[in-house]
Simulated assay, not measured.
Amino acid sequence: MRSDRIRGSGITPWQSANLDHPAKFETLAMDDEMKKMIVDDLDRFLKRKELYRKVGKAWKRGYLLFGPPGTGKSSLIAAMANYLNFDVYDLELTDIREEIEDEGVTLSGLLNFLDGLWSSIGDERIIIFTTNHKEKLDPALLRPGRMDVHVHMSYCTPCGLRMLVSNYLGITEHPLMAEAQGLIDSSKVTPAGVGEQLLKADHPDLALLALIQFLEVKKEIVN
Rank of each mutant, 00 (worst) to 15 (best):
G160A: 12
S3K: 15
Q15I: 12
L93I: 12
E33F: 03
H133Y: 15
D87Y: 00
S119I: 11
R2F: 11
Q213P: 00
A201T: 03
N223D: 11
I11M: 13
I212A: 05
P158C: 12
I121E: 14
P175H: 09
G145M: 03
I212D: 06
R97A: 12
T130L: 06
I121S: 05
N85G: 05
R7M: 04
N112K: 12
T71R: 03
I38P: 08
D40A: 13
M153L: 14
H174C: 11
V165T: 08
K35G: 07
E50M: 10
A201W: 00
R5A: 05
K200I: 04
A17F: 04
L199F: 00
L142E: 11
H150F: 09
S9I: 14
P22V: 04
V189R: 11
G182A: 09
A58D: 13
T172N: 14
S186N: 04
R2A: 02
F45A: 04
L206H: 08
K188C: 11
S9V: 15
D41R: 13
A81V: 06
H203Q: 15
K136L: 13
K188D: 12
A29R: 01
P139D: 12
L114A: 03
S119F: 01
P22I: 05
I77H: 02
P13V: 07
E216M: 09
G122E: 13
C159N: 14
T157M: 09
I221V: 15
E220A: 00
D148L: 10
N167K: 05
D31N: 13
K54C: 00
A180K: 08
K36A: 15
A17R: 15
G160F: 02
W59R: 02
N132I: 13
A207Y: 02
K73R: 09
T131S: 12
D185N: 09
N82M: 05
S120Y: 01
I6Y: 15
A58Y: 03
A23T: 05
L161W: 08
K36T: 13
N112V: 06
G160S: 07
